[in-house]
């Protein structure tokens, strides 16, 4: 059963006809071609599909597309602007927090949400904030470092 869906993704408005069963992840990847958001499990257990819905981090695999109607979605493709990486992205690059990269978009979006909400998290708060994002490559050491560096970069940006 298809229904009309009006949705804003990375600032672009889209008017689509979407089956009621489709998740936000399906629409992003299949209808809009935004394949930066990954499907790692389809059950909200790995975090690879994390996007921001009206600024809140959500598992797009567990969000029906029509539940996002009329809302603002930010995906990894919308994070950097004009070829300049977002400070969270810069930190992941500089700290070597990326290996295979499949979890990276979700990690980055979750980190952004975490730091938006709490610009000065403790180590404990970082661990709690990212516990829904699995990574099988890095052992997380450099991911924690990247979040801490991003925290500093964002704080510096605030000062400017």
């Amino acid at each position: 059963m298809k229904q009309e869906l009006l949705i804003t993704v990375n600032g672009d408005e889209h008017h689509l006809l979407v089956d009621t069963r489709r998740t936000l992840l399906d629409v992003l990847r299949d209808d809009l071609g935004l394949t930066g958001t990954k499907n790692g499990c389809g059950a909200g257990e790995c975090g690879a599909c994390t996007v921001l819905l009206d600024g809140e981090p959500v598992n797009s695999c567990l969000t029906l597309a029509h539940e996002a109607a009329g809302r603002d979605v930010l995906t990894i493709e919308g994070l950097s602007s004009g070829g300049v990486l977002h400070p969270v992205q810069q930190a992941f690059v500089s700290q070597g927090a990326i290996q295979c990269g499949f979890c990276t978009p979700g990690m980055v979006m979750t980190t952004k949400a975490l730091l938006d909400r709490n610009p000065d998290p403790t180590r404990e708060e970082i661990l709690a904030g990212l516990r829904g994002n699995l990574c099988r490559c890095t052992g997380y050491v450099k991911i924690v470092e990247a979040v801490e560096v991003a925290q500093c970069l964002l704080a510096e940006e605030e000062l400017v």
Partner: peptide
Amino acid sequence: KGLPRVDAVPKVTGAAQYTVDLK
């Protein structure tokens, strides 16, 4: 040197296409 990976930027921007992303 601990230089950043050559594929870090495409991976961190979502531009990197995995087999599962191909159309």
